[in-house]
Design a protein around this nucleic acid. Structure first.
Length: 113
DNA sequence: CCTGTGACTGAAC
DNA sequence: CGTTCAGCCACAG
């Protein structure tokens, strides 16, 4: 495809099955640029097809979303992902502190291409 | 064509 | 443990 990297990202994100999540780096790697996670975020920011692109299934390496840029807020994301069957990890997991707040259990729900 | 900016990531202080 | 720095690459002006 002659589509821009941006389009590749959309195509990949749309392939993410419900109940699973992918990290920016994961999508970037599938797009062919494992170092281009930022471009993935930029692509999703453009989000030319809202409702079609499950940007809420794309999370940080830690399993968290961009606070403030989430399609409606972290609460909305948690409700939506949880509704799809995604498991969430509460603080005090993963051995110890780790990241504060809620985050997706990448160990159980990270998408496998 | 060049510059600026950015939903990232990993490492360092 | 929390914050900051630097590197990477694509898109928009």
């Amino acid at each position: 495809m002659c589509a821009s990297f941006n389009d590749h990202v959309y195509d990949i994100v749309k392939q993410i099955p419900a109940g699973c999540v992918a990290t920016y780096g994961q999508v970037a790697a599938l797009a062919g640029k494992p170092r281009n996670a930022r471009a993935v975020g930029y692509a999703l920011h453009a989000n030319p097809e809202p409702g079609v692109i499950p940007c809420h299934r794309v999370v940080f390496r830690d399993g968290s979303l961009a606070p403030g840029f989430a399609f409606g807020g972290p609460d909305r994301q948690r409700a939506l992902l949880r509704s799809e069957g995604v498991t969430f990890v509460e603080p005090c997991e993963r051995g110890n502190a780790g990241a504060p707040g809620l985050r997706v259990d990448l160990s159980r729900c990270q998408w496998h291409a």
